[in-house]
Nucleic acid binder design. Sequence first.
DNA 1: AAATTCCGCAACCGCCAGATA
DNA 2: GTATCTGGCGGTTGCGGAATT
Length: 343
Amino acid sequence: MGRYPCCKDDDDNDLKKGPWTEDEDEKLTDYINKNGHTNWKSIPRKAGLKRCGKSCRLRWNNYLRPDIKRGRFSHEEEETIINLHSVLGNKWSRIAAHLPGRTDNEIKNFYNTHLRKKLLKLGIDPKTHKPITHLNSLIDLSNQFTSNSNYFVSLASALRLQAHFTLQAKIQQLLQSLLSSTNTNFFSPMQGSFLGHPIDQAERSQFLNSSLANFTTTRPCLDNTPNSLPNYYSSISNSLEVPSEKFDNIETIQRSSAWALYEGDMHKPRNGANSSEYFQASELNLNADHAECSIPSLVPSTSENSNLDQNCIPKFSELDDIDAWEIPHDDEAISSFWNTIFQ
DNA sequence: AAATTCCGCAACCGCCAGATA
DNA sequence: GTATCTGGCGGTTGCGGAATT
């Protein structure tokens, strides 16, 4: 025969569940203070409680124990939890062992409700503690950065370069994908044109050889001002908005990406506009109920093509060969297509 | 002001490894 | 050696208060 089962005796039907009352807390505390807790099963009966032994143990360990520290977690405790979680994972009891006065349950709740969100806002996956790589998460991150105070920016100082390069890798990956699949007259460097403008051999060669390779190093650099990163992420991610299931925004992707690639090569747009302004302007134009192209200054002043007649720029109504992108048509395949690009 | 939604947290549930009759 | 319980753990639930509509 083994031991007697817990909470399965004849009184089982009378056992109380739910929140503990002050009276119950007092009875349990009094009993344990006088007798200790060697056998949880017998405690409720001896203490005059209609509770299961397991419930008593939980109540004592998570709430009534005298050495429990209540109140907010300190900054040091937060850091300890995050560091330990990155090593131990969801081993809450082991994490709690390093935080005197804190229970595993309390740490678990705190992590899941506060630290998880905080890590997400920093662009860190709360499970793996690695930078988030899904574009939607990055978009959310950019929104958080844009709307929040400097608090997270200061916390993120060690992480933002990592996130910065992760995002740039995404963009580069996207552009490579676009470059390899595009066959339109909208953006077709392989065929020697950009937005309908011819690109000569030298320019084309320079474009292909350097734009992607240099993209990560020729982007506008982040400085240390608190708003630099939020604005940067906001502008980039907005310009690369993932289209809806129906690809209503496919033009946005095409044009913004084309611009991003071109800008990556040429460093700066004409007229002294910065890249953020350009992305946002482009986005605004594209979201309007436009009938024609409205970003003529994509052609840099340094280019010999800068004097081209703006009327050469194709109208949107002419950009109807989306099929040439080999983009799938059913929802599942569309999802898979973009996941391949963004992950 | 009322209804609804969101959020935090205490408590419960179910599983497992080790203990023990 | 085996059957079964205990204690511990991580995941989940649901209540109550706060925030939002």
